[in-house]
């Protein structure tokens, strides 16, 4: 890439067409960036708008008097903070479990000299192409395992993803076998080798896989909708979904009419602002963490696609 850039920059013949193309290209990507970022900005702006201003102004790009009252309100209910804690708990537990189980599986099967290796691989790969389907899965978890209204139903079922398994396995296969051999000769058990030697060497790959699972769990709402009966056990996404998509205000927010300010006047909160505040609260952790994990997932995606 660098050589290519140097080649074309040092050369005298950079045609007019080249310049026009470069400029158009840059403008195009700036436009794309705006199209992507503006909706986020807009949602944030609405969440900071007071009801009075929202009703008065014909349209709002950025509120004249930004207010945090929507955030103050949603975090004063018991629902949103509890759901926040719950979602973090589910995400952390599912990520830890999935990364551990998947990497153990990948290490056990990475060298290809285990008896039954081929059987195990086919056993795992079949699940990529064929599954029970919605209702059999639902019956399995609610009837057979009896996990309705149980947080385990949101944590355990996805802990082995064959796609992630393939990513980790192909990384483990690239590590020199002599590493394990020498440790084995020194008397280390397989568990010690995995935890003391293999894991420290594969942090970028494990981080990628952990990130896939964490994002998937944080963003999932469907299994919670299927298995959770009690609103107290709803993760954030499901609350936002019921609130925004189905326009059903959560039970905990029904008493909004009783709100008074310090002088005793009734406060009317901006309903759309509340919805958007919930959405911002839900998406914020993802947006904050995202730049730090970018370098990992680019690598991880590539391994998965090439070796898949």
């Amino acid at each position: 890439m660098a050589r290519k850039a140097a080649l074309s920059q040092n050369h005298i013949r950079r045609s007019v067409g080249d310049h026009i193309f470069n400029t158009c290209n840059i403008v195009l990507f700036i436009l794309i960036a705006i199209v992507i970022l503006f909706p986020f900005f807009n949602v944030f702006a609405i969440s900071l708008t007071s009801n009075v201003e929202y009703m008065r102004e014909p349209y709002i790009i950025w509120p004249k008097e930004p207010t945090l009252e929507a955030y103050e309100y949603i975090f004063s209910t018991s629902l949103i903070p509890r759901s926040y804690a719950l979602t973090i708990l589910i995400t952390v537990a599912a990520t830890a479990l999935s990364t551990l189980v998947t990497s153990m599986l990948a290490y056990g099967l990475c060298r290809g000299d285990l008896h039954g290796q081929k059987f195990f691989m086919i056993y795992l790969l079949i699940t990529m192409f064929f599954s029970g389907g919605l209702i059999p899965n639902y019956m399995n978890i609610t009837k057979t395992l009896g996990w309705s209204n149980n947080l385990l139903a949101l944590i355990v079922p996805n802990s082995v993803s064959v796609f992630n398994f393939i990513i980790v396995r192909s990384f483990f296969r690239q590590l020199p076998p002599s590493l394990e051999e020498s440790a084995r000769i020194d008397g280390a058990s397989e568990w010690t080798i995995l935890f003391r030697i293999i894991y420290p060497l594969s942090i970028p790959t494990l981080a990628t896989v952990a990130m896939f699972v964490a994002v998937g769990t944080w963003n999932s709402w469907f299994s919670a909708m299927l298995y959770m009966r009690d609103e107290k056990l709803y993760p954030l996404q499901l609350i936002v979904r019921n609130f925004v998509v189905h326009e059903a205000r959560p039970a905990d927010m029904q008493n909004m009419e009783g709100l008074r300010d310090a002088a005793g006047n009734r406060i009317f909160l901006n309903e759309t602002g509340l919805k958007m505040a919930c959405a911002v609260a839900t998406v914020l952790p993802m947006v904050i963490i995202y730049p730090f994990i970018q370098k990992y997932f680019e690598k991880g995606m590539t391994i998965g696609a090439v070796k898949g």
Binding site: V43, V215, W218, N219, S220, W221, Q237, V240, R241, V244, V245, K275, M276, A279, T282, V283, M286, V287, Y290
Partner: peptide, 9 residues
């Protein structure tokens, strides 16, 4: 990285 729920929002 955002869910379809947030996308709808």
């Amino acid at each position: 990285f955002i869910s379809w729920v947030i996308m709808y929002s």
